[in-house]
Amino acid sequence: MIEVIELTKRYGRTLAVDGLSFQVKPGLVTGFLGPNGAGKSTTMRAILGLDAPDSGRALVDGRPYIEIRQPMRVVGALLDASSVHPGRSALNHLRALARTNRIGTSAVVSVMERVGLAGVARKKVGAFSLGMKQRLGIAAALLGDPAVLMFDEPVNGLDPEGVRWIRELMRGLAGDGRTVLVSSHLMSEMQLTADRLVIIGRGKLIEDATVGELTKRFQRGVLVRSPRGEELAAALSSAGATVTPEGGGLSVQGLDVPSIGDLAAAKGIPLHEVTPRGASLEEAYMRLTADSVEHKSAGYKAVAS
């Protein structure tokens, strides 16, 4: 369980995180989404005690991270896979981390096998591909067998096979009842991995909901076509729906498909098309974060004029 409470972090004049509050619950993969520069990494660093917040706090299992004596056994984190000394072997890198929390070499060896790095344990990390470094970072996070895991953009730079591996790993960790927070700037990725989404923009919470709730919220009504459109529109309106004509059909808000069908049948009005229209989560995400994107690309019109 991770709790972020009214967290605010400023860098000079930039407000990186602005009164942010959310919770990350065990047994679920929680996607931490936001455009680049939204404050995701800052929030994660604050949770790990690396950045001191200006106000507010972050708790892991009810206590500040910096009070945990052997934190690797409680929280595993992957912040930046490239943050390794290139001249050190993968094995020595992990052994050094493990020793600080009194984790034995046997755990290091088994974690290396689990992430598929056993064959390159004695190779220098500098020779690793980004994908192998991501696996090394994940190995470091798993060393202490922690119940809480945080991954900052773990799929960046991975090939499709690596992406699928990480996705399944995170699902598996959540399936064990662990708390999993994973950040990304891509909704398409989170849609496949996360159960819950915490969406932030410009350091502020925009949305905290399950994937299902969000999908439902962004439904854009039902498109209905009928040869007796005007009659149907009147009937739907009197049943409480908002009806707007749209390209020869009707866009209906406020009534679901069965209700529209039942109503039409009761009135004897034939229906030629009934299509529920949901926005893709990707579109929903774009709309939610539209105001908080740091560098908006200029629209085509703006360029032309």
């Binding site: 945990i68 390794v84 929390n101």
Partner: peptide, 18 residues
Amino acid sequence: TSEYATGLIRSTFAVVPR
């Protein structure tokens, strides 16, 4: 400095917060 240059210092201080 080798830890600051590579970013390893983040892991170092994350696993030993004191």
